[in-house]
Computed example of a mutant assay.
Amino acid sequence: MAEPVAMRAAVAALARATAPGGDLCRPFLDAFGVSGAAMSTLGGPLGTGAVCASDRLSARRDEIQFDLGEGPCWQAHSTNRAVVESDLATAPPAAWPAAAAALSEAGVTSVAAFPLSYGRLDLGAVDLYSDERRELTDDEVDQASTLACIAGRAVLTRALDALEAGDDSLFPTTFSREVHQASGIVMVQLGVGVDEALLVIRGHAWSSGRPLREIASEIVLRRLDFS
C-alpha cells in the first residue's frame, strides 16, 4: 500500500496539475514505485490521444495499445474497472493477446490500468508499467483508482480551459487530430466508414512494425495512398 505521506503528496500534486505543464504521471510513480506511467484519453468527449507519459518508453508502450486498438487501457476504459495483470509472460490475458505479446516484447512484466473519469464522464485510462513482477494489493488498486479520478478532473479542466481560450496548445492532442485527419483521408480514398478506415491504418501500422502516428503523418502528407 502506498504510504499515507506519499498518497497525500500524490493527491495534492494531481489537484494542482490542472494548468498546462503540470505533471499528471509523476505522482503515480512516486506513490507506487512502478517503472513507468502513461495517461490517455480514449474516445468519448475528448477523443483519443496521449495526455502524458513518465518517459519515452512508457509513451511507446501506450502507443502500442493505440496502434493495436486493444490492451489494458482499452479494457479499463470500456469496463470502467481496474485491470491488473501481474505476469504478462506466463499468464497473458485472453482479452488482448496481441497487446500482451507486444508489451512483453517491449519489456513489460506487469501492468495495471485504471479508468480515467470524472463524474459520469468516461475520459480514458491511466497505465502503470513494471519491468519486474509487481502485484498490486487491493488497497493499492483502490488508491490508484482514486488518483485516476483526481487526474480525470485535471484532464477535463485542461480541456475546458483550452476550449474557452480557443487554444489547442493548452490541451495537446496532436496524436488524436492527426489520426482523425488521416482516417478522413482514407475514408475518401477507399469509400468506407471511419471505423473501417481506422482499421486499415492500424493494420498497416501493425504489419509494417511502425507506430500508428507515423503512418497517419504519411497519409496526411500524401506520402501514403491506399486508393
Rank of each mutant, 00 (worst) to 15 (best):
F32K: 02
V111D: 07
D62V: 00
T157C: 12
L103Y: 10
R81M: 12
D168Q: 12
A106E: 04
A59F: 07
V34Q: 02
A59S: 08
S40V: 11
T48P: 01
L136M: 12
P72K: 01
R61Y: 05
A112C: 04
C73K: 10
A37V: 14
M39K: 02
G44C: 10
E63A: 14
L88V: 07
A82C: 03
G152A: 08
A91G: 05
S110G: 07
I150S: 02
A154T: 03
A101I: 00
S40H: 10
R61L: 09
F171A: 11
S130F: 08
L170M: 14
G152E: 01
A125N: 05
E164M: 14
D142N: 10
F171H: 13
D131W: 12
E132V: 13
E140H: 05
L121Q: 13
D30R: 06
A89H: 11
T146M: 15
S130L: 03
R158A: 14
A101S: 12
G33P: 00
G36F: 06
G49K: 05
L46I: 06
L147P: 01
D138A: 15
D62W: 04
L88I: 03
L156F: 13
E164R: 12
E140V: 01
L136F: 15
L46G: 10
A148Y: 08
D122A: 15
E105F: 07
L57I: 10
A95W: 10
G36S: 08
L123G: 09
A95E: 14
C73V: 11
V51E: 06
V83K: 01
D30Q: 12
L160H: 11
R81G: 08
L170S: 06
R158P: 01
V83S: 06
G36Q: 03
T146Q: 12
G166C: 09
D87F: 08
S104A: 09
S169W: 05
P97Y: 06
L57H: 12
L160F: 11
I64L: 14
A100I: 03
G71L: 08
P72V: 09
L116P: 06
V34F: 03
T41M: 10
G33L: 04
P45N: 10
S169P: 00
L57P: 00
R56Y: 10
A159P: 02
P93F: 07
G124D: 03
D168E: 15
G47Y: 10
D138Y: 13
A50E: 11
L170P: 04
Y129L: 03
W96V: 00
R81K: 14
D139A: 15
A98E: 15
A106R: 01
A112E: 02
D67Y: 05
S117P: 01
R158V: 05
